[in-house]
Design a protein around this nucleic acid. Structure first.
Length: 862
RNA sequence: GCCCGUGUGGCGGAAUGGUAGACGCUACAGACUUAAAAUCUGUUGUUCAAUUGAACGUAGGGGUUCGAGUCCCUUCACGGGCACCA
């Protein structure tokens, strides 16, 4: 009795999916054990902030990771695929303020909710390694790392310019300053010098930069971004004498322009300015005005250049000439030496400043004749030195070398490198973060805690109703005895930037807490590190990825670990986007608030008001174009969702959400299901797989399907190796389509189809694991498909015996011929020339040249 | 301003320098059905011819090549990063 494929009932994902999720979880199916006999593969997705809800972006990120993890596992790797929570941070405190809850409670509750959501997505995680950064076990160890880095001289405290919110009494990150005002209080942000904790990332600037070139498996884009961020420039420092005694040292990358220097400019934060301000009212006022400006980049951008003559003069090192020294707001204390010599003729900023204050402009580079723009300021790289004493007539590179040599020789200059990279300010005047294990003692100064006195636990009894840091306001928490002298002292009340928490979590995952109490057990780390595949959003290209690289190097130098680069292969996935709808008054509408009317125009369902269909933009709550994964899973199942987020669009590109596309994946899941059920009814099962296959005896179409299947295995394997999930899905669909075209032949060819179906399930399992496990057990296969090897293909089936050879005349396609692969050339040409179309076009013209690329193409040139 | 990336049907996208548009979505048609949905099977770059075919076609212009979406030069558009960095 034949089963009618159209009568197979739909795939019941709502029973099947939870069943397998439960099974995997209970049996710890994806627990990682290191196996020396296998190559290892550490697959990691950037861990999640427990905001309370998993969004589609997470789903895409983790699905990509899960596909890689499952694929690698099947390919015989011993895989580590962990999951955890980046749990400290400001939103928990904001929520606490709003809901009168405790950040801890809020955070762990959210983790609970999200853990459940993540489980419903069927990811192959090793749940035994799950942890949150706010677990005392985790942050205690972080304090230990902090102390080690402090001992190593990598951590210091220094006054630094910060954005200060005078209403909230706290420091704001640059991102939290909007139009010069605090984002929450609305108060005008001040620029303040404040004592802050810093980690000396600049000590690693050179290594962070040079090692980038070895990160071959990182996106070029990210490497360039980091390179620019580190921003190395090479040049030299030059000492300018004041009255033959004191001096000002400047840094320049254009020392060859020194004969065009007409003044010096120093930062308002420069030591010499501080000194002068004591005795000079005008300078004091200038500094006050300057300080009113924020340090935020956005604010600085709008600012005009302004300056003040100090009245001081310095000697030009080569000319009997004095240069005036100006204070200028565009000179940054944080870069170089905080002082420059200005050559207005060849620098845009110097030029603008010189024009404004009527300072001389002296040309020292004559542009080449063919230079596109010879106007001053001339900043081109070509030209000849003029008005420059012994440099006259030299090219710029020649002059640069000559002048540096000379400066070094006479002892006023030195070759120098400078970096844009700044030290990492990690102090946060917040409660919900890792406490800094330091003590302020009046007698002893800064005293680090001893390792054995750790952890410094966060107190639970804190209040959030006052502005400022709850730790600082706590009645007793900060009172402590100095570990050195035993006197009364106070704890540091700043907590660590949460980027610190995420700078070493990947190391922590290597160690199974339950099995090894040493959280950075060197053996475990040596086994698993580096992360073989790291996956996350490109928005972390600089901060997180740079901090994590730095931390790894620093911890290596502190003796904790041996590796120096954490992430071997980095993959940055695109954002999930969706169309936006907006009313004419600008109000955003969600997709279920709009309908297409009879004329095909979008309108608001309730009011009939006209709706503007906006751009496809990143999903965000404010634009109301978000999609809730829970609802999708409820209606279509996890497999359909997982399949959808990786089909059609390459994972590195932005993904345009579409309900129709999702429907398509749902249809495909059912199409698979019907294939499996129908095949089973035709006798396809595990026990049919044992037979030796005699390919030659098969009917032509079945043999072709079998051979094509080997190509499918190859194509999918290659696609997944290159992380082209969209291509893998396309090949799978193509393959399923061709299986559908020979459904009638299944019963007669049970062994062949059993093998095909078995391997098809394996090929599908990284993407849609639930339906695969179900089909696997339904067809009588043993264990889990997740435990089985990846199918292999046989090269001998890849070769085609006949091919369709395209025939071109003068590079234009004019037809094609079926030829056997082993046809001799003259036979192939004969066939090609016999095509009517080809004959007509060539006619009696002489063939000048014939190109035959075997197996590819023939081209006649006439 | 500087640096990087991208540009292919109505849409998402395929294509080691070798038949451009695989696969999917949308749309249309046929089969099944009393009917609809679902399913199965087709068609779907544009313009002519209307069967077989022809011309055009991978942002625009130029070049290399027997042959270019792919390599080189150039212009434009969009996206991203950095931005007083001396």
């Amino acid at each position: 009795m034949l089963l009618d494929i159209s009568e197979i009932s739909p795939y019941n994902f709502s029973i099947v999916e939870p069943k397998w999720q439960e099974f995997w979880y209970k049996n710890q199916s994806f627990k990682s054990t290191f196996d020396l006999r296998k190559p290892k593969c550490y697959v990691l997705e950037m861990f999640m902030y427990p905001s309370g809800k998993v969004h589609i972006g997470h789903v895409r990120n983790y699905t990509i990771g899960d596909i890689i993890a499952r694929f690698k596992r099947a390919c015989g790797y011993s895989v580590l695929h962990p999951v955890g929570w980046d749990a400290f941070g400001l939103p928990a405190e904001n929520a606490a303020l709003k809901n009168k809850s405790h950040p801890k409670e809020w955070t762990y509750k959210n983790i609970g909710i999200m853990r459940k959501q993540i489980k419903s997505l069927g990811f192959s995680y090793d749940w035994t390694r799950d942890f949150a950064t706010c677990d005392p076990r985790y942050y205690e160890f972080q304090q230990k790392l902090f102390l080690a880095m402090y001992r190593e001289g990598l951590i210091y405290r220094k006054k630094s310019a910060v954005n200060w919110d005078p209403v909230d009494n706290c420091v704001l990150a640059n991102e939290q300053v909007v139009d010069g005002r605090g984002w929450r209080s609305g108060a005008i942000v001040e620029r303040r010098m404040l004592a802050q904790w810093f980690i000396k990332i600049t000590a690693y600037a050179e290594e962070l930069l040079s090692e980038l070139h070895n990160l071959d498996d990182w996106p070029e884009k990210v490497r360039i971004m980091q390179e620019n961020w580190i921003g190395k420039s090479e040049g030299c420092s030059i000492k300018f004498k004041i009255n033959g005694e004191a001096s000002i040292t400047v840094f320049t990358t254009r020392p060859e322009t020194i004969f065009g220097a007409t003044f010096l400019a120093v930062s308002p934060d420069h030591a010499i300015v501080q000194e002068l301000s004591h005795s000079d009212e005008k300078i004091r006022k200038f500094i006050d005005d300057y300080k009113k400006g924020s340090v935020s980049a956005e604010f600085l951008e709008k600012q005009e250049k302004f300056g003040l003559d100090t009245g001081i003069f310095v000697d030009h090192p080569f000319l009997k000439k004095k240069l005036p020294v100006f204070i200028a707001n565009f000179v940054l204390m944080s870069y170089g030496t905080g002082a420059i010599f200005a050559t207005p003729a060849h620098d845009e900023r110097d030029y603008e400043f010189a024009v404004k204050y009527g300072l001389p402009i002296l040309e020292v580079i004559r542009p080449d004749e063919d230079a596109p723009d010879k106007r001053l300021p001339y900043v081109g790289s070509g030209g000849t030195m003029v008005n420059s004493d012994f440099l006259n007539g030299l090219s710029i590179p020649e002059a640069r070398k000559a002048i540096i040599d000379k400066l070094c020789e006479i002892g006023v200059g030195e070759r120098k490198k400078f970096y844009k990279l700044r030290d990492w300010g990690v102090s946060r005047q917040r409660y919900w973060g890792c406490p800094i294990p330091m003590i302020h003692c009046e007698k002893c100064g800064l005293v680090p805690l001893k390792d054995e006195d750790l952890p410094v636990l966060l107190p639970d009894d804190v209040a959030f109703d006052n502005p400022g840091n709850p730790l600082d306001l706590h009645a007793t928490w900060k009172q402590v005895k100095c570990p050195q002298c035993g006197c009364d002292a106070v704890r540091e009340t700043d907590t660590l930037d949460t980027f610190v928490d995420s700078s070493w979590y990947f190391l922590r995952f290597c160690v199974n807490d339950h099995e090894n109490p040493n959280l950075l057990s060197p053996d475990d780390i040596q086994q698993w590190m580096p992360v073989d595949q790291y996956i996350g959003g490109v928005e972390h290209a600089i901060l997180h990825l740079l901090y994590a690289r730095f931390f790894t190097k620093a911890l290596a130098d502190c003796g904790f670990i041996k590796i120096r680069e954490p992430f071997k292969n980095l993959f940055t996935q695109g954002m999930v986007c969706s169309v936006t709808y907006q009313k004419e008054n600008g109000e955003w509408l969600s997709p279920d608030e709009v309908t297409r009317n009879l004329e095909g125009i979008m309108e608001e369902t309730t009011t009939g008001e006209k709706v503007i269909v906006g751009r496809v933009e990143k999903m965000s709550k404010s634009k109301k174009n978000v999609v809730d994964p829970d609802i999708i899973i409820k209606n279509y199942g996890t497999d359909a969702l997982r399949l959808f987020v990786v089909s059609d669009t390459p994972p590195e590109k932005d993904f345009p959400w579409s309900d129709e596309g999702l429907e398509g994946c749902w249809r495909f899941i059912n199409r698979l299901w019907r294939l499996f059920v129908f095949s089973q009814s035709q006798g396809v099962c595990a026990s049919e797989c044992g037979h030796d296959l005699n390919i030659d005896g098969l009917k032509d179409n079945v043999r072709e399907v079998y051979k094509a299947f080997h190509r499918t295995i190859k194509n999918i394997t290659n696609a997944l190796d290159e992380r082209g999930m969209n291509r893998a899905v396309a090949h799978i669909r193509d393959c399923v389509n061709s299986l559908y075209s020979c459904l009638n032949d299944i019963q007669e060819n049970k062994p062949v189809f059993s093998v095909i179906i078995r391997d098809l399930i394996k090929l599908l399992s990284p993407m849609v694991p639930h339906i695969c496990e179900e089909a696997w057990s339904m067809l009588g296969f043993e264990n889990l498909v997740s435990d089985h090897d990846w199918p292999s293909y046989d090269e001998k089936y890849l070769a085609k015996s006949t091919i369709t050879l395209p025939i071109q005349v003068n590079g234009k396609l004019r037809g094609s011929v079926e030829v056997a692969v082993n046809d001799p050339d003259h036979v192939v040409f004969q066939k090609a020339l016999a095509i009517d179309n080809v004959k007509n076009i060539i006619g009696t013209t002489k063939i000048k040249k014939q190109i035959f690329v075997k197996g590819k193409i023939i081209n006649f040139v006439v």
